[in-house]
Design a protein around this nucleic acid. Structure first.
Lengths: 211, 211, 211, 211
DNA sequence: AATGAATGAGCCTTCATTCAT
DNA sequence: GATGAATGAAGGCTCATTCAT
């Protein structure tokens, strides 16, 4: 049924390998050779199929996972607070779960702090919608009681907490050598961030925060 | 009275250049040659003064400033909540203030995943004490009502929010081209993070959060 | 019929150049750049074809020729004394003959004092078998009359005499500016070493040495 | 009593350190920094006192030890055969004894195969006299029965055997990991070379070689 | 006279890319 | 169309040497 040509298969293998390697080593740290080794093809293949390492990154980022996450969240028949919790949990799973290989999200996270030619595309197609999505979710929680700037900062506070566990992973590993991101730990972290943030946004909105 | 030797001046120029380049390109993306070019010295200077690129990073992180920040905070005759606010503000000033360019510690250790003595030292001497400090400050606010793991996560939530503005700076620049980190903006951000976090930690501690 | 690919040609040029440069400047003194310059290729070629400077040395030593030499000697239908003479002559030709420049194995491993995989491999694959071979040849001459340690020293004495002409070539050139290693001279040297050594090993074995 | 100035002391320390390091690592492998570290002075001292690394080598080689060896040998009230044995033993001790630091002879041995600017001086002042000395000793044993070329080759055979143990040390260490150059082993080697060579030169001279 | 600081040429190696089948 | 071979720019670093006291 899958009329995949050999070319398509090679492309697919390269994209998967690229996602793995980019998410592990970042764009600069990744080498074309390593990607091609994992894709079991030759080093010319990247330039042949994608023009350059940059081009490979651009294609490797299809953001499907991220969009699926948002779509699923919107569909969820839950109150905004519960949806925030869900979103944070799914986002953290994408960022941290070691059993989910080749998450685009993890690639993005790595590149946020280290501008690459692909960053414009990443921001435009993935991050801007994501910020918009979370902004709307927060708005659904707090209503019109907060200004635009404050809403934005709430979104930043939530993403900042999430991304910290990825960006600071090398540091956290050294601080707490026993730390492992299994699903229990990820759930605990996500629960914490959700509770913490819910209280935060409500405080910002001037809403009394019951225990 | 400027008892600065030529050596000290060269070291200082290198450190400033390194902070600029490291924060712009990350550790891997930064080149010794570029750093030396900006410092107007030769490429050997880095190895001469700091032993290696790693060693330069370790010194560029400027532990002294971090420690001064903590010391000043401890001395402040304020309640823990106010001290948290102060700490966040000073930390954000250190991370973001564009008016003291390159003399600040802009870099937080990242992407030194391979076990390297530099990151070990950085974590041991700078980051671990910093986490301990903030942990104690949070504890002073919430008392013994939270467990060790939760306390730790509160610390992570606060640092995550702060570092977000540095790590995601390239992203935020693209999302909000008009964004400038002047002292007014920094104060607003710090205020937001302090309020948000205070509500967060109290919620985690099970403390009713009045408006 | 010249089924040599371009790769093989480049490899061969590199090996020839490496033998020249290594034998002129030693391993440390030789530079990859100089070798590549003489081989008329770029500096990456060494690492591409041989992995490293060490790897290039390992291949340049040309074990094949050494092995062919031993194989031919074993096949020779001669008495052990005559075979010793033959071996020394062939070995000296390999070491010294100026008429087959740089296609020969001129280098004997030296100055790789730091434990390096290259020298380990060289010793294991080339030198140990060679010592074993000469040990057996000496044993065939003297029988069981000498102990293991003495047999070993006889082998060392023979190799030492041969290698002297290579290792001390720069010295001998200065001592005897007229010295040329043409085939007549090489034969004379080989004959000398064979006679000298035959008498030596027999004396060590306690065998009366007739004129 | 020693009216040594501070300068002289520094020079002396540098020369001693240089002899150590040169004999251990060869001229190219030795670094000025290491020499100065051992001499407990600064890196400029070498150039200040000796002009360059080359100049340091030239001065480090005063050949006193070598000359003393020859002088002592001439004085010895022994037959030429016994004096050959003595000479080889003393020469080997100089080359190999790990308890005799900073032997000039060992430096020379390293540089024989790897021409340095100092080689002309070494050959002229040390090696040529040494070859002449050993030539005369061999001549005293065999008389006028051998031609000049053959006499020369006998000298080469003897030196070749001795130097082998130094040049091929890295190889021998790997072939026989248990090998140690203690004085017992050195004496055994020297005895072997003397016996072997005596038989050799007599055979070359056409002298019947009694057991 | 003597030294700590600074230099720049050069080292081996890695890398994304291009070439020539 | 697809690949193994080859490239050259650039990387961090080491070193003998020179500078400026």
């Amino acid at each position: 049924m899958t009329a995949e040509t050999k070319t398509d298969q090679t492309r697919a293998r390269l994209l998967n390998a690229a996602r793995e390697v980019f998410s592990q080593h970042g764009f600069q740290g990744a080498t074309v050779r390593e990607i091609c080794r994992r894709a079991e093809t030759n080093v010319s293949a990247v330039n042949y199929h994608f023009g350059s390492k940059d081009g490979l990154l651009a294609e490797a980022l299809n953001f499907a996972q991220l969009k699926a996450l948002q779509a699923a969240n919107i569909k969820a028949d839950e109150c905004p607070e519960a949806r925030l919790h869900l979103f944070i949990r799914d986002f953290m799973l994408m960022l941290l779960d070691e059993n989910t290989p080749s998450s685009q999200c993890r690639i993005m996270a790595r590149e946020l702090a280290d501008p690459t030619p692909a960053l414009d595309k990443i921001v435009r197609e993935a991050i801007a919608p994501l910020h918009k999505f979370l902004g709307e979710l927060v708005h659904a929680i707090v209503g019109d009681t907060v200004g635009e700037a404050e809403l934005r900062r709430c979104v930043h506070s939530i993403f900042g907490q999430c991304l910290f566990y990825r960006h600071s992973h090398p540091v956290l590993q050294r601080l707490y050598p026993k730390l492992r991101y299994d699903s229990k730990e990820i759930n605990a972290i996500a629960g914490h961030i959700a509770d913490f943030s819910l209280a935060g946004v409500k405080r910002i909105a001037g809403i009394r925060n019951p225990v």
